[in-house]
Design a protein around this nucleic acid. Sequence first.
DNA 1: ATCGTTGCAAAATATTTGCAGTTGA
DNA 2: TCAACTGCAAATATTTTGCAACGAT
Lengths: 133, 133
Amino acid sequence: MTTTCQRRNTRQRQVVLEELMAECSHPTAGELYRRVRERLPRISLGTVYRNLEILQESGQAVRLAGCSGQEARYDGRPEPHLHFHCAGCENITDLETVFPLMDDLLGSTLENHEIDGYHVILRGTCRNCRSGA
Amino acid sequence: MTTTCQRRNTRQRQVVLEELMAECSHPTAGELYRRVRERLPRISLGTVYRNLEILQESGQAVRLAGCSGQEARYDGRPEPHLHFHCAGCENITDLETVFPLMDDLLGSTLENHEIDGYHVILRGTCRNCRSGA
DNA sequence: ATCGTTGCAAAATATTTGCAGTTGA
DNA sequence: TCAACTGCAAATATTTTGCAACGAT
């Protein structure tokens, strides 16, 4: 929805955001729902979805592209940064490596498109999956 | 599925791949189904999904999940390249701009992860959406 | 008091799967 | 031949929505 109204600060929204930020694993809506329910047992899955949508609108959450499986994953870290997606364990991890070249693109125009954000997923194999079978 | 068996070269799979490569718009499975059906009227949506899965296994297609909306989009261009996702029209376009720094990462190790592919989506507004309302 | 938000349940979408018949190698 | 593949339909999974009650401001 492109509804721009006066948002209210509800407990549900706050807890969804807190748990999203606490979770480094970039949880799916369902995973987040399970976690949030430990603190708010009566919250519904619909509310989690609605709040994820609202948090995206306000730039506090990002829906991740290019994961595998079919459930969308969410990231509670708003600044653009790199992600790593392991082909073995399928986990998505934040990378701390900074990529200045990428940041230089922000605000510039590329092939007639104004760039104001980026989303990078590097793919490969993590150390764990390399050593283990 | 991680089934590695002797794949057969069926007409359905061939047409799915052809139409996927012909389509610059990174179609969803449903869109592709509609296109493919013009050539193979009896093909089923399930077959399209199954073949997209198989084409990914063999590296001939890439799923661009979770871009916007809920339907996954597919890309029939196997070499890593940049994508642009317009916030206005929601379209995803290939960029021809080459990003050597990105390619340098391939084969290297970053924070203990072996990198062998990348997936980049730049976000912003395309010229069309900028001029139009 | 107002109107954004919630829980619930049902609807809408998207994707996967079982199966019996078909087909490529 | 024979296992991979297909169409079909049903099953699952995921996400959205209508609505009456609730609660933040």
